[in-house]
Amino acid sequence: MSDHQHEHDYDHSELSETELRVRALESILTEKGYVDPAALDVLIETYEKKVGPRNGARVVARAWSNPQFKAWLMRDANAAIASVGYAGRQGEHMTVVENTPERHNMVVCTLCSCYPWPVLGLPPVWYKSAPYRSRAVVDPRGVLRDFGVALPAQTEIRVWDSTSEVRYLVLPMRPAGTEGWSEEQLAELVTRDSMIGTGLPKKSDEIAR
């Protein structure tokens, strides 16, 4: 209890110090004319409200519904994704990797935090953390267990370390029992983690249709 309390207080004072530092920096940079605070607001709003994993879910749902779109997505991911409306920073060079019954794909950036922003938004804290970056390449099955995912032992695991400006998106397998579903319904099954490869899509009975 006391340890926990101490840790909590420590975190709190660190946060305040950082908060003051960032605030001072913003006011210096604004006064010097290097930044326009209104532009900062637009940047924040973009990644807090507009760009996120629902984008990627729409791409995946379209690939599940439309074999021609899927073939295009696998061949020229940038063009196919742009046709759904997503492009730009941290998604300039997209490659889509497909899960099959034999092979499961998982994406990491061991060196920093490379992540396909236009389709997934900003990366979650765990993706940028030392535990994930250190273990994904040496013990991917163990990492999957941390996420509650157990794959058959014979399933091949393919890990993609994002060391260049190429960004990887996992195309998960379409869940059983979803024949005839609309793209909008299918998109509801697609989780962020299923597009990173640390999770699987929801099952057909996990959502209300």
Binding site: P124, W126, P131, R133, S134, V137
Partner: peptide, 16 residues
């Protein structure tokens, strides 16, 4: 230390 691939001791991945 940013080059973390294969390092041990950082503990489990904790999703939020």
């Amino acid at each position: 230390v940013h080059d973390m691939g294969g390092m041990h001791g950082f503990g489990p991945v904790v999703p939020e």
